[in-house]
Nucleic acid binder design. Structure first.
Length: 279
DNA sequence: CACGTCACCTGCGTGC
DNA sequence: TGCACGCAGGTGACGT
C-alpha cells in the first residue's frame, strides 16, 4: 500500500499515534526479530540484530516513499515497496506471554515498554536500512511534489529536460519522489493529459496545471488516510474517490466515455480517451 | 538517454 | 475441486 499519501499516513501514525497504533517516539529497542533476512538491506542481517539494540526513536519523517525513523544514533529507513505494512502493538498478552507474530511478519522490533513495531510484508519486496547517514539512500531522489519550493516554472523546465512518456516519468523517483500508479493515473486524469504524452510537448500552462493536480490528489489522498484496496486494508478511504484507477469499462465521471486500460511501462494504466486525448 | 523485459515474491480472482 | 493464468499500491538490473 505504498505511495506518498499512504506512507505519510503511516508516518503520522508512528509519530503522533493513530489508527495503526501508538506513537513510537521515545521507545527504545530491546529485541529484534528477523524472519526474512533479505529485508535488511544494510547492514548484514546478523549484525543488524545486535546494532539496533538499545537505540531509541527520537523523530519520524518521510522522504518520497521512504519512512525515516530518527534514532538517538543513526537512522532506520524503511521502504514498504508493494505490499509492506507497519503496525505498533503490545508485544505481550495479559499473562505476559509474547504475542505470536502473524503470517508474513518479516521484522519485529520490541521496545523497552512492552510494545513492538512489526513490518508485515507478504511479497518480501520491502527493505530496511540501519545507517548513520541517509545521504546515499536519498541522493538520487527527485523533489518532493508537495514542497512549495518546487514551482510551476521549475516543473515545466523539468518536463522540458526529458523526452519521455509522461506517466513513467512521473513515477520515476529520480524525477519526482512519491508518485505511484494510483495517484499518477488520477493526477493525469485531473489534468486531462494522456499518459503517453511526451513530457517535452507539455506546454508551460499544462505543466502548471499538472503540478497543481498532482498536489491536489496527493493532499486529498493524505486527508483520506490513503487508499485501501483488497488485501491491504489500512482504514483509508481515498479508493472511494478514484475517478479512473481500476475503473476500466466504467463511465468517465466527467463525460461518460468508457474508461480504458492500457499497459504503460508494465503498469496497468487507466484513463478517459475523450478527456485525455493523445495530441 | 529512453524503453522493453525480466526478476524479486505471495495471494487472489477468473475461467476452463 | 484443481489448476493455469493474469493481476497487484515498487524498483533495480539488463539488453537494445
Amino acid at each position: 500500500m505504498p505511495e506518498l499519501p499512504e506512507v505519510e499516513t503511516i508516518v503520522r501514525s508512528l509519530r503522533d499515534g493513530g489508527q495503526f497504533g501508538p506513537s513510537v517516539l521515545g521507545r527504545r529497542v530491546d529485541a529484534a526479530y528477523v524472519d526474512w533476512p533479505r529485508t535488511i538491506a544494510e547492514p548484514e542481517a546478523e549484525s543488524f540484530q545486535g546494532l539496533i539494540l538499545g537505540r531509541s526513536i527520537t523523530a519520524v519523517s518521510r522522504r518520497g516513499k521512504h519512512i525515516v525513523l530518527h534514532l538517538d544514533e543513526g537512522f532506520l529507513v524503511i521502504h514498504l515497496r508493494m505490499s509492506g505494512d507497519l503496525r505498533v502493538e503490545e508485544a505481550f498478552d495479559a499473562a505476559g506471554e509474547a504475542v505470536p507474530f502473524r503470517k508474513h511478519d518479516r521484522v519485529g522490533l520490541t521496545f523497552h515498554d512492552g510494545y513492538r513495531m512489526v513490518f508485515h510484508n507478504p511479497r518480501k519486496f520491502g527493505r530496511m536500512w540501519l545507517t548513520d547517514n541517509t545521504r546515499h539512500l536519498f541522493k538520487k531522489l527527485g523533489p518532493e511534489p508537495l514542497d512549495d519550493a518546487l514551482t510551476r516554472e521549475d516543473f515545466f523546465i523539468m518536463l522540458q529536460h526529458h523526452k519521455r512518456q509522461i506517466k513513467p516519468l512521473l513515477m520515476d523517483q529520480t524525477f519526482l519522489a512519491g508518485m505511484g500508479n494510483i495517484y499518477t493515473d488520477e493526477a493525469l486524469f485531473a489534468a486531462r493529459i494522456h499518459p503517453l504524452t511526451i513530457s517535452h510537448q507539455i506546454s508551460a500552462e499544462q505543466a502548471g496545471v499538472l503540478l497543481e493536480e498532482i498536489r491536489a490528489v496527493l493532499q486529498e489522498g493524505i486527508r483520506r488516510n490513503g487508499s485501501s484496496i483488497d488485501w491491504a486494508y489500512r482504514g483509508g478511504t481515498f479508493q472511494n474517490e478514484f475517478q479512473v484507477y481500476q475503473r476500466t469499462g466504467e463511465d468517465c465521471p466527467v463525460c461518460g466515455t468508457e474508461i480504458e486500460r492500457i499497459v504503460v511501462g508494465q503498469r496497468g494504466t487507466h484513463f478517459c480517451p475523450h478527456c485525455q486525448p493523445l495530441l
